[in-house]
Design a protein around this nucleic acid. Structure first.
Lengths: 353, 353
DNA sequence: TTGTGGCACTCGTCCGGAAGGAGCGCTGAC
DNA sequence: GTCAGCGCTCCTTCCGGACGAGTGCCACAA
């Protein structure tokens, strides 16, 4: 995909990497003299200038104006993170600090909140966590409560700890006794099975036993099917959006506004995260690669997190394209692992009834 | 409280009002020449200068620097909104536009969301709505569900439509049958009564009948008391925070950040709104009157809203101190009325069972 | 072919000073 | 009390020069 990367020789790669590292740390266009010195290569500034001209021709760097130094382009950053980046291993203390933020006893929601806020605080950018897909969590119990004419509250207890309730609008009315019987039936058949299984089973039964069962049971299945409706709400937890106000390169008010708006709407953020959920390691989105205007000068670093070996969600940070990838990437990586572990530990000890 | 206001004669008042109006619309310090013209008074600029010097002595206006025009001080704004402000009546179309945003069939939550977003859109500032206190809403039903050892889910249905659930951690364990009986007992005694009454009644019974009742009933009362615990969560709905990014006078990044942070935390916002809940009309907070640093250059316009004649919450907008109060005040006012009406209509037709 | 030193040139930034303009305070006259 | 006028202050804008960073190109050496 990057044919230009293939053509780079060792010296060009060193210079590009040094240039980008220098730009990331200073925010200033990098000139040939400084670059020659910083690179550690035994070449003169003039030689570096020639190399820089080549790199500019290939679209990896550019000069903001004549006789300024060079800054990386989006393509340059892309190449950098794909094949030039050497990440710093996070220190033991850093890992411990992050881990200590995950209280094993906390609820899923609290863990997600912790994850996004720890991401935000450690990286000083905005943190975000895609809610975990409910994979094979067990349905502990289902109950119905009659609210009024044709309106029924369905209560799902999942994994013996989390509660979801949904209001169902039905065409026909059931008495509380009817509902109780239906709940009993469903609980007897389905309790303890995974939500996924439960849904499949309900659908199967609806097809298979439609004629054999009495109306009551049929209604129960129908009701169960409705209650389990669309699995779980798409959502994302964000934290520390305001960290982004501190960055010089994000100070364009209109852009900044669109950016914060995107955090409020959450929809576009979701879109970006969902693109990252495939792939098993850290992924990086740079600048407008995602096709979103407000995303100029921003990058996203994401990593999926898993429970019991299965990827259930993705988390990451969003910040200026000029960020310390070597520091941020490993942080996002460990946070994803640690969140996965924390969720995992919890999943192993459901105090089911 | 403002002894300086008493001493202002008609001309001074006119000039102060004109000055503030001019500053609000232009954002520029106002000079004597322009002020003389804009005021409509038949006096020269020199005379106006004299008056301005007086107003400056009284702390109502100030000059950013020598030989600049004058701008209002906080005290000046205060006097302006308290006794100089002539609000524009909102047009029929504006009222209709706002009213159309309140769908009578919507849930309370949706109505609050609509209110804050309509406030934000119409005023182009940030809108906020304090959640309504649950005044005398009726408890329709209470149910308990055993989650695990000593953990019980309490489900309250209120007004036949809204559902609250809370997880109770108990010292002793109850079987689902026990819980069912306790719920039956509580429902028989309490359903249909207002939450307030219910709480009072439970407390009374706990004292009075402690010895007469069997352990089961006692436990039921105890459980009910816990389930009704601290009435409802303090919360506030905000919308359109990003509108604030557009204002020149709020462009200090550090301040802006604190401001947005306050919206995220919600605590300080709550504090401000709660201060405004007493008083039956529109209230205005200016600048640092609230004692909060980040509030410099900001003002809040609030109005309480009522259901069935009782104030249940407060809504408002937050924006730059230099805002068009004459336009904003009536908007906040009507929005509060319309929200009250919308909630009221809904309250009259609870489809109880 | 590749690397190097040197030179001319281009910009952007940083003053410093000058010009212009808005606006104030003060004073003296009506 | 009102008002015109004067002198003064201070902000803003513009302009030009000095400076520095950095480039592109060329000639020359290895």
């Amino acid at each position: 995909m990057n044919d230009s990367s293939i053509q780079l020789d060792a010296r060009e790669r060193t210079l590009l990497r040094t240039l980008i590292e220098s730009y990331i740390s200073d925010g200033q266009p990098v000139g040939s003299r400084n670059l020659a010195r910083a690179s550690g290569l035994k070449v003169s500034a003039a030689t570096v200038r020639n190399v820089m001209a080549d790199l500019e021709d290939r679209g990896l760097i550019q000069a903001p104006h004549t006789s300024a130094g060079r800054v990386p382009t989006t393509a340059g950053y892309r190449l950098f993170v794909d094949s030039l980046l050497e990440v710093r291993k996070p220190s033991r203390e850093q890992i411990d600090a992050i881990e200590s933020r995950f209280d094993p006893g906390a609820s899923t929601q609290d863990l997600l909140d912790s994850a996004s806020s720890v991401l935000s605080q450690v990286t000083r950018m905005a943190g975000m966590v895609r809610l975990p897909r409910h994979r094979n969590v067990a349905l502990s119990q289902i109950e119905f409560l009659r609210l009024g004419e044709g309106r029924v509250l369905a209560i799902l207890v999942i994994d013996g700890r989390e509660v979801q309730n949904r209001v169902l609008e039905l065409e026909r009315d059931f008495s509380q006794d009817d509902l109780q019987r239906m709940a009993n039936y469903l609980n007897a058949h389905l309790a303890g099975k995974s939500l996924h299984t439960v849904r499949a089973e309900l659908l199967r039964e609806m097809r298979e036993v439609r004629d054999d069962l009495d109306a009551q049971m049929l209604a129960a299945i129908d009701l169960g099917e409705q209650a389990l409706g669309d699995e779980d709400p798409d959502d994302v937890v964000v934290a520390g959006q305001t960290q982004l106000l501190g960055y010089e390169e994000l100070s364009d008010m209109e852009r900044l506004r669109q950016l914060l708006e995107a955090f409020n709407e959450k929809r576009e953020i979701l879109g970006i995260l969902d693109q990252c959920i495939r792939g098993d390691r850290v992924q990086i989105f740079i600048g407008r690669e995602s096709g979103l205007d407000w995303f100029e000068n921003c990058s996203v670093v994401t990593a999926p997190y898993s429970v019991e070996g299965e990827v259930v969600g993705v988390l990451g940070v969003i910040g200026p394209t000029r960020m310390s990838y070597d520091r941020v990437v490993p942080i996002v990586d460990v946070t994803a692992r640690l969140l996965g572990s924390a969720l995992n530990v919890r999943g192993e000890s459901p105090d089911s009834q």
